[in-house]
Amino acid sequence: MTAPASSSAIPVPKAGSWPLFGWFTLAFMVFSQWYAIATSPADRDMGDLQKILYVHVPASWIMSITFALVFVYSLLYLWKGKDSYDLLAASSAEVGATFVGLTLVQGMIWGKPTWGVWWTWDARLTSTLVLFLVFVGYLALRAFIDEPQRRGQWSAAVGVLGSINVPIVWMSVRWWRTLHQMQSTPQTMDPTYRNGLLINFLAFTLLAVYLIRRRYEAAMIARAAEMTSQAAALGGH
């Protein structure tokens, strides 16, 4: 083998200026949270607890984005069969599972002083937990299968079906029971709250983009390393 750098069959994504972007994102997160906390007065009904919403609502927003990404990339993989779509779906799912878990814990911390209990079987809490379990199942399936082709096809099918199920779960649990406060849209909120929330939405979105991109990069490099060593084992020169 004369040119080892070009011997890997799949193109390895370059880090480029992504590390810079990452550090910028972290700094921006610190700034946006500081801004939101500093500018907002204590809420009339919720008191200081309202400050939890600046990280809770954006985290749950990332959850919805990643679910959409898993759906889109899984469909693309089933359609085109390109490895990169499979790994993008998997990276989105891993980041998504992390943020769903975070959302749940934040929700419980918010719920304890608000409702007096750590957990209530309220519609949004319960459906979020079910969605978390769907993500966990998806990642467990990937962990249990070694062959890339099979892992890709199967997890794509599970990803698509799981995403289709999201609105159905949400509706059924809402019918089953609801006492969560209605979602407040940015228009009906005080402008100081709205600005703080919007800037945090932006910060979390940038963070999710960064994490998914780097996770995907790692997965592609790992795949390339696997294929290179396989090629060597199969009698490269």
């Binding site: 083998m1 080892p4 750098a5 011997s7 890997s8 390895v12 990452g22 972290l26 980041v95 992390t98 994490l211 780097r214 996770r215 990069e217 790692a218 997965a219 490099i221 790992a222 390339a224 390393a225 696997e226 290179t228 060593s229 090629a231 060597a232 490269g236």
Partner: peptide
């Protein structure tokens, strides 16, 4: 999670370099 991602990235890069060197 940030640390986890970067550790995965570093390990993968390490594996790729090793595989290329072996090849």
């Amino acid at each position: 999670y940030w640390v986890h991602v970067h550790r995965t990235l570093r390990d993968a890069q390490h594996d790729l370099d090793a595989a290329n060197a072996a090849g």
